[in-house]
Computed example of a mutant assay.
Amino acid sequence: MRMSTEREKVRFTSGGIECVAWHYPGTNGACVIMAGGGGVTKEPGTDPFARRFHEAGYTVLAFDYRHLGESGGRPRQIVSVGRQLADWQAAIAFAATLPGVDPARLAIWGFSLSGGHVFRVAARNPHLAAAIAQTPNADGPAAARVASGHQRPLTLLRLTALSLLDAMGALIGRRPLLVPLAGPPGTLALLTTPDSVDGDRALNPGNRYPGWQQAIAVRSMLGIAMYRPGRFASRTRRPLLVLVCDQDQSALAEPAAAAADRAPRGELVRMPGGHYEPFLDGHEQAVDAELSFLRRHLLDHQPANGPAATGMAHPE
């Protein structure tokens, strides 16, 4: 799909390391900050939704986490919950300085692992105007239990051994051991759930993004499996949209729906399909729900002082 909107490459710093992002200049003063799921870079992870948000007038900042994509950080293909949360903080601060952006009308958007981050980031940043968690991984242990049921016991043992070996290797500076993000049962991969194999078709149709390395360091898997960001939903005071797919076997619908119910201003949208349905046949339904939410909370109740330009982006 050819991008029908202009965008520019911008950079900001997180933890002393450069993060790279796409900046889509908007017209309505509001900004949506976006990141892809676990191991998914900004183009396959955000392009379809970023384009639609931008066409509706929003500024968009879609970034790569450290250690992934075009952002810096060594070693590569590391997914660290703590570092990614810090990257969100840096991205939010940078977005507030973009030309024409009103800092009072910032929203965040993430799916899968990043959708889980949305719960924590929204709880930590009460100044955000809104947050969208799309098919979020709200409860890592629950998702891991379901995922293990779609894997062969011997492969699970091998994956556990590799994870421990890679974690020990990290202590002495060895390069990460990598496994694919998804694969059929019996293969060594982060996910082998039935809907996980839709990831490449949903995010990378026709190999549209050949530079996307669809692999993750095995040392990252334990942190993801133990992560329970849905617990923070009750602390989120701003409007929160949680979009779940009822047949999601990779991140699970029910823990995310329960998180939406605990959020004081939570809204839940349910749709049929697996984990990647919002990128497939359900794309229009997902986009319509998210645009309606953004319009109600970022545009219909604009602050009295209007858009404020507080800084400049740094084009490539």
Rank of each mutant, 00 (worst) to 15 (best):
L191H: 13
R262I: 01
A304D: 14
G16L: 13
D281W: 04
A95F: 02
Y65F: 15
A30H: 06
C245D: 05
H54Y: 00
L106D: 03
S4R: 14
V118F: 03
V32S: 01
E277G: 14
G39T: 15
D64G: 11
R270N: 11
G45Q: 11
G26H: 06
L191Q: 12
G149N: 07
T59K: 05
E290C: 10
G15Q: 06
V242G: 06
P75Q: 06
V269Q: 08
G186F: 12
E6V: 13
E316P: 15
F63I: 01
Q247Y: 14
G223H: 11
G36D: 08
G169A: 07
F63T: 00
F119Q: 03
A144N: 09
L222Q: 10
F12H: 01
T192Y: 09
R74G: 06
F293A: 01
T192K: 08
P126L: 05
P75I: 05
G69Y: 09
G282Q: 13
H275E: 06
A217D: 13
H301C: 01
A170Q: 07
A95D: 00
A138T: 04
I108A: 01
R262H: 14
G282V: 12
D261Q: 11
F49R: 04
V244C: 11
T97R: 09
D288N: 07
Q89T: 01
G26R: 02
Q77Y: 13
R174N: 11
R66D: 09
W88A: 05
H150Q: 00
S80A: 12
Q249N: 09
A86V: 11
L191V: 09
L268H: 12
L164T: 07
V79P: 05
N28V: 08
G206F: 03
P25G: 15
S234C: 04
G206M: 03
L98K: 09
L61I: 00
S196V: 04
L128Y: 04
A30W: 04
R145Y: 04
H117A: 01
